[in-house]
Design a protein around this nucleic acid. Sequence first.
DNA 1: AGCGTTCGTGAGAGCGCTCTCACGGACCCG
DNA 2: CGGGTCCGTGAGAGCGCTCTCACGAACGCT
Lengths: 347, 347
Amino acid sequence: MTTAPRKAGRVRPAPTLEDLAARAGVSRATASRVLRGDSKVSERARQAVLEAARDLSYAPNLAARSLVTGRSDSIAFLVEETEERMFADPFFLGMLRSAQETVAGAGKQLVFTVVNRPEDQERFLAYAAGGHVDGVLLMSLHGQDHLPRRLEQVGVPTVLTGRPLSDRRRLWYVDADNVGGGRLATSHLLASGRTTVATVTGPLDMCAGQDRLAGYRAAVEESGMGPEKTLVSVGDFTVAGGYAAARALLERRPDVDAIFAASDLAAFGVLRALREAGRTAGEDVAVVGFDDIPAAAEQEPALTTVRQPIAALGTAMSRLLLDRIEGRDRLARRTVLPVELVLRETA
Amino acid sequence: MTTAPRKAGRVRPAPTLEDLAARAGVSRATASRVLRGDSKVSERARQAVLEAARDLSYAPNLAARSLVTGRSDSIAFLVEETEERMFADPFFLGMLRSAQETVAGAGKQLVFTVVNRPEDQERFLAYAAGGHVDGVLLMSLHGQDHLPRRLEQVGVPTVLTGRPLSDRRRLWYVDADNVGGGRLATSHLLASGRTTVATVTGPLDMCAGQDRLAGYRAAVEESGMGPEKTLVSVGDFTVAGGYAAARALLERRPDVDAIFAASDLAAFGVLRALREAGRTAGEDVAVVGFDDIPAAAEQEPALTTVRQPIAALGTAMSRLLLDRIEGRDRLARRTVLPVELVLRETA
DNA sequence: AGCGTTCGTGAGAGCGCTCTCACGGACCCG
DNA sequence: CGGGTCCGTGAGAGCGCTCTCACGAACGCT
């Protein structure tokens, strides 16, 4: 008998199904049936196998199982951002948390990956195509990202949040109502008597950035105010981006009396810029953010913002992916979750 | 020819090494050699295989590879806390981030898992023993945790941070100098003229909690002050725990003029309790934390604290594990990284 | 010229599991 | 009591790779 190559440190070869079956006095097939919970086994055989498994500390070789079943029972959580960004933004952390809970609850493992360079994408694609994950939760797409399409092409079900700008046909995604949220924030500002309502946008190569801006524009259009290019300042979802965009805006239009920021982090940047310019947030200039991350409420002054149901988003994504993997049909390709305005001190 | 069970959605069966070899006009063995970067291949064969791989979008089946090599090229990141705690503490987030960077840099995947109930432990043990991970990074051990020992027993190399209270023989770990840090904080307090120096401890079923308390005790002993039981208030590493412990302390010993809190989060709780009691942190009562999480500097007043090199800890753990997996010997079982005192406003 | 070496290659044997298929026995029916 | 049906079981064929081994060709040496 030849011994298989083993991990360094493995003292003696791990028991195989063969060993287990021998000890239990049954065939490999029956032992396998017991382990998988197949119904067609006698109580006597079941007990024998279970006892033998306990005695041997038997653990099935998952690679072997995976090889024959074609499943791996793990799910990738993929963020297309730098580690820096991912860990600085409570949005991603919240998504990771709820995805982890849901996936673990379904008895599967979560493989956590960050890709930012194109070669990372290729490496991940090869990994996923290699069958190491049954599906992918993909977050934070930028521009014309073909990764989702390519993953589906190699047979790996993928669910997104924040769909790519184009190429969205036949993709599966869960999203918050970004357009509605932008409109909600902006019309609240308008309704509370503000006359010069500006926006600090998110990155415009992202769907969430575009949609929230579209919501702002829709609200502005609906009111009498009419759109003005100078009131739109392009930023991104970070504090630094919001700060820079707000400074540029304040320089260009010192007359603004309200700002809708496309993320809470960006809103924090706006608040800082306002403070530095000697303006009082909530009085001179009203500010509304987007997300409702925990820090929004702790902020001084507390941030009025559009609450995005982060945990629900993560759960919905994971559930949808799990359902797709199970092959359940009649699933909606697209889910949009509602947002709500949380009134606090800045608007 | 029978077709293997396939993932739902897989349009046509993925090309196998067999297909690849056929197209390249070589044998399976040679194709495999090219893919693994084995040197013993002619340039002509190498090119043919590479081209065929491109044409077919070939991706090796990782389960099959894993089955024969016994390796999986993934590493588990395991936290023995609730998701709640894990995501509320920047320490774990920092560890996750640096582990992810290091592991990804080594071309391996990180499997992220949280276990808190005993049955989760069993499930994870079976998973790891099943060969789905080559090693485990284990964090936040409580009490007499036998998981590390059991993992090693089934042949899965494990590296810890925060070793178990007992049973530490033959375990591999990386830790910050917790005793030194506790002593550093406490003697700084003593040296700056404080006379009644208390401590809000971490959880005493954890090594970090015990060690930081031991450091406090050592410093108190060294000074003339002498130990007093009433000055030790047992808390944990959370804000709520620190708050509760500080309230109890303040009730018992209203005369305290300095508090060493065993974590920054706990220190935030202490600060809150002080505020509520009408005491001014940094003046009436000096406070020193432990960790130096980002929020410590942003706190009002800014928190004086013992800086733990979180990123270095995560990197060191990962490197050590990777080295063990590679079978490099002459490795130190134990690494202790130095800490430093960061003086800010509270002490 | 004869020998050993090296080099590139292919044949073939598994790795440990799942799943299909066939088979014998117990059971039920008229 | 003969025929079905069901139920529990085992034999055996892979899944797609890696790795050992053997072999022929090309090379260098005496």
